[in-house]
Design a protein around this nucleic acid. Sequence first.
DNA 1: TCGCTCATGTAATGGGTTACATGATTCA
DNA 2: TGAATCATGTAACCCATTACATGAGCGA
Lengths: 186, 186
Amino acid sequence: MVQMLKFALLGFLNYTPMTGYELEGWINASTGNFWHAELSQIYKTLKQLEKSGEVVSRIEPQEGRPDRRVYTITDAGKANLEQWLATPILEDVDKKDPLLLKLFFTPPSDRAALITQLRIQLRLHQQKLDHYRQQSPTEILQFAADHPELLTNAPLWEATRRHGELYEEMYIRWIEETLQQFESLP
Amino acid sequence: MVQMLKFALLGFLNYTPMTGYELEGWINASTGNFWHAELSQIYKTLKQLEKSGEVVSRIEPQEGRPDRRVYTITDAGKANLEQWLATPILEDVDKKDPLLLKLFFTPPSDRAALITQLRIQLRLHQQKLDHYRQQSPTEILQFAADHPELLTNAPLWEATRRHGELYEEMYIRWIEETLQQFESLP
DNA sequence: TCGCTCATGTAATGGGTTACATGATTCA
DNA sequence: TGAATCATGTAACCCATTACATGAGCGA
């Protein structure tokens, strides 16, 4: 999975020019549930993108706070983005789930630890589900209101939100099943 | 998510002493669906574990092929493993899904690309689902037969298999929903 | 004969996190 | 008064992947 962040940044800059700091805001607000990044990594990647000619930056002086470095996507950047979008994903995605790893190695004799762990996770996933069901839809509407030019993208945002909702429903169902199984064991 | 591989290795070595090469086999066969690693990373991590006193190794000479370096977990290693197992997971797991990222940035005007992408993914996830339903259960039985001392762990292996099955069912459902939505759009 | 399995590792590179450093403005 | 927001970045470190290197034995 090579350098996805690069394309996330190009994707947002293809909407409109902005700074690294603003990019982080967009990532947190929209792709955060399936792709996130630290600010330091964003700055580093932007530098690479500028070096490879996919974006250019200009400095907007400010007073009282650091100057803004505003990035704009170039034609080369747009071309790379489009090519990436047109390429189908064929490789396996490598899921990594620390909970499953921990469960897997918990000795079956220690049922108490197992059940505690699962109950904590159940609560966390229920919170996330609530977020997808309540918070996210209004966030999407807010974004569309703030950026009317991106209104046609709303169905895609909704699709990714829906993915999160289904994922959490699935996870909760699995925890409940597993809890039942281990609670009823000898 | 710091250094989970370390605990995966300790977890397996807690079953029985073995080489780095054998550890890779176990990982592929059992935790592969939620935690995997390259051989080179396994060797590196084993070295760290030896340095920190959590495992020890001895060399078993062989003829015609490289000597085997067999690792054994120490009391310190067992203590760390147990402590890790007893610690509940509280942080968010950072999901990263390249498909969602790609969809998110596909211009709604390019419906054809979107639908192609989804159809390819549908096939891939159906294959994975088949694997969880058919292949994995027999793999688990095989493992239990080969290592009867680990038979009590079977319910946990089954739980992780079930997680994979539910995950793929969810993913397929989401793709089908999303396909329908975009196929029926103007 | 070709590729797989067993078996070890190193080196180069890249992606990502955490900590550090700076500093004005705004709001509770 | 203290925290959050805006805004930039560097440095150290760690985890992971890919490529490279070696080489016998075995089965199709």
